[in-house]
């Protein structure tokens, strides 16, 4: 693979990452969100795969496969189960901030990510590192989704969006986070999602509907 192809593909994947993030802000249907999330996972796997090809590491290849399995396969599946259990009321009802404002905020957050990431890019200017701001932007957008979405599954999506961003930053910044660490991280994310999914179930048992904004029994 020539250097230019690598860069082109890399940028394409990163663009996909950002685009899917914005889409997640845009769309309200949980089912659509999950599909978009799977696409994003695929883009992430592409970034990992490209890194593996470019640096020629077997470990990275394994990581790419792992990401593909986890983020395109397992996590969307778990999410779908969570949403399916919710029942017909699966459409996201009015987020705390309306869509137009959300998109505007996403733009601002992306700019902020660019501004903040300058030192990161400057440390080792390269094709991969210059895409770091996108990863950071995805993290911030994910955080924003987390604080503006009412339903438990969509909060879950926000959390995973953040996590995708972090993984992207990890893949872009480095070729060699120790495999054990990477594995541990993946496992932890998986477990966190599992926990949240179980809790979603329990919330449904105890509260009936899973509007997180209604969880306000514990307060001062």
């Amino acid at each position: 693979m020539s250097e230019t192809t690598y860069v082109q593909l890399l940028y394409l994947a990163c663009g996909g990452l950002l685009l899917t993030s914005v889409l997640m802000l845009w769309r309200r249907e949980l089912a659509v969100l999950i599909r978009v999330f799977a696409v994003q996972g695929f883009a992430l796997a592409v970034i990992a795969g490209l890194a593996a090809l470019h640096h020629g590491g077997i470990e990275l290849g394994a990581v790419a496969v792992g990401i593909l399995v986890l983020r395109v396969g397992i996590l969307p599946w778990l999410l779908r189960r969570a949403v399916a259990a919710v029942g017909p009321a699966s459409r996201e009802t009015r987020p705390l901030v309306n869509v137009a404002a959300s998109l505007l905020v996403a733009a601002v957050l992306t700019l902020l990510a660019y501004a903040v990431s300058r030192p990161l890019v400057e440390l080792a200017p390269a094709a991969a590192t210059s895409a770091i701001p996108i990863g950071v932007a995805v993290v911030l957008i994910g955080f924003f989704v987390l604080i503006t979405r009412r339903r438990a599954p969509s909060q879950l999506v926000g959390f995973l969006l953040m996590d995708n961003g972090i993984t992207a930053v990890g893949l872009l910044t480095t070729a060699g986070v120790a495999l054990t660490v990477e594995l541990g991280v993946a496992l932890d994310v998986l477990l966190a999602v599992l926990v949240l999914q179980i809790l979603t179930g329990r919330m449904r048992e105890t509260f009936g509907d899973t509007d997180v904004a209604e969880l306000r029994e514990l307060h001062d």
Partner: peptide, 25 residues
């Protein structure tokens, strides 16, 4: 498994996971 307990657990996991994700970054 009371309402309050589940609510607390949800908040606990969501907030802590978010925070710890920042630490990971």
């Amino acid at each position: 498994r009371t309402r309050a307990a589940v609510e607390a657990a949800w908040k606990y996991v969501v907030i802590c996971s978010t925070g710890i994700a920042l630490a990971l970054l």
